[in-house]
């Protein structure tokens, strides 16, 4: 954790408490997660109670308080993806990586997340791999995708 980056983000938003979510988003982008130290520093500089910052960080699904894996696999569980078999994709990942959604593999390579909708319903079922959308996913295609990531 590099403390300067947190300070930079806070300075960019002029320590404005209205920008709490933006600040947390920027820190999350830089660090990949929200470290405890960063949250404490944000609360201090924005003059927002620590519990408030902690609550906001817990409330939104896009924030995570634990370090994530090198590759993040986001499985969409929205209605369209659900009816086209998003659960089978999660089953596939569970079997292949031995983790539940929201967890990270022990070697720190993969994090699996389930979200409610990624807004690409026409492509369903969708899996977002490190920010890249993969539509019309099948368990077979997903297995290949994970294998190629494991090799790289």
């Amino acid at each position: 954790m590099c403390p300067e980056s947190v300070e930079q983000v806070l300075t960019r938003y002029n320590d404005s408490r209205r920008c709490l979510v933006e600040v947390l988003q920027d820190i999350q982008d830089r660090e990949g997660y929200l470290p405890e130290e960063a949250i404490r520093r944000v609360a201090e500089r924005l003059d927002v109670p620590l519990i408030e910052v902690y609550r906001v960080a817990n409330f939104y699904k896009s924030f995570t308080l634990r370090p994530r894996g090198k590759h993040v696999l986001t499985v969409c569980k929205g209605t369209a993806c659900h009816v086209r078999g998003a659960d089978r994709l999660l089953d596939e990942l569970r079997g292949q990586l031995q983790i539940e959604s929201g967890e990270t593999t022990e070697d720190g390579q993969f994090t699996v997340e389930a979200v409610n909708c990624v807004g690409a319903c026409a492509l369903g079922p969708v899996v977002v791999v490190d920010g890249e959308y993969h539509g019309h996913m099948t368990p077979h295609k997903l297995r290949g995708l994970v294998a190629s990531l494991q090799e790289s």
Partner: peptide
């Protein structure tokens, strides 16, 4: 004191200290 708060949402909502 602001030491306690509701954390999480929906079914996961619970009372907690920071961290």
């Amino acid at each position: 004191a602001k030491a306690l708060g509701f954390v999480g949402r929906g079914r996961d909502r619970h009372v907690a200290f920071p961290f």
